[in-house]
Amino acid sequence: MKERALTIVSIIAALALFVGAPQIVNAYWLGVALQLLSGIALTQSWVAFSGLTGYVSLGHAVFYGAGAYVMALLWQSAALWEILVASGFTAAALALLIGYPALRVRGPYFVILTLGLSELCKYVVIAIEAALESSGRLLFDTPDPVFLYYIMLLLAVLATLLTWGLARSRWGAGLRAIREDETAASTVGVPVTFLKIMAFVLSAFIPGVVGAVWVLRTTFFEPMQLFSPTTSFTIVTMAVIGGSDGAPGPIFGAAFIVILSELLWARAPQFYLVLLGILLISFVLFIPRGIYGQLTALAQRRRA
């Protein structure tokens, strides 16, 4: 009971901090907070599918990029919220298209396939843009950064609620069963293909909207950058470091990576990526449950 109260209080405090941040911090730190929120939103949506099913997707950059592309194409020709919703649905539709063939394979094959498909999508967009004789699109009259920040906060909260709810639901139980043993799951009645595809589609929606918000913030759409596989790698790193079996993990992971990059990026950029690599390997080898998973395991051991 005490732990529960503590959790609720810290959630409220964190939310209040994020809501008040634009009044407290300068533009630079607001940018960092935006990074953090987008990291949370992206990683939550990844965990909702990959964390629960064990199908490691390296394709989430596609959904992010697709959302950004929709925004770049439609900006100023429709209302902001309409484009945001369209971005989300485009990403989800893409997930349906990709998921149907890709989810027939598992393990390393799925990982490589999603990476390959995401590179394919990137070059398709580059080819389309080249055919349209566009080399990057500038977005004019984009909304105020503080406004975008609040949209991102909303997305991070929505993504967290989504993963939290899914992880505790019947659907989430089915997805975990798929992760543990897909054959056994289908034998006790779990409609594995349907659950996987629906979770994949659901997990693509949020990254689509995040990408759309992000391109409004940078005001420039360039496919190489917005479809970069680095986005997928960062998401996976955050999930692995934070923990990928529920909603708390991604918050820890995103906070850890964003703070680390703030501390090191400017001072020792070469060292930063090396350290990130070392950390990722160490977590996979020694703390596969991630920060949050390890904390709960320690707490349980202490109680026992």
């Binding site: 975990r176 069963a177 992760r179 543990e180 043993d181 056994a184 034998t187």
Partner: peptide
């Protein structure tokens, strides 16, 4: 059915 070589959801 049950499986001869048991297939529990080990992590659950």
């Amino acid at each position: 059915r049950t499986f001869q070589i048991v297939r529990p959801f080990a992590g659950m």
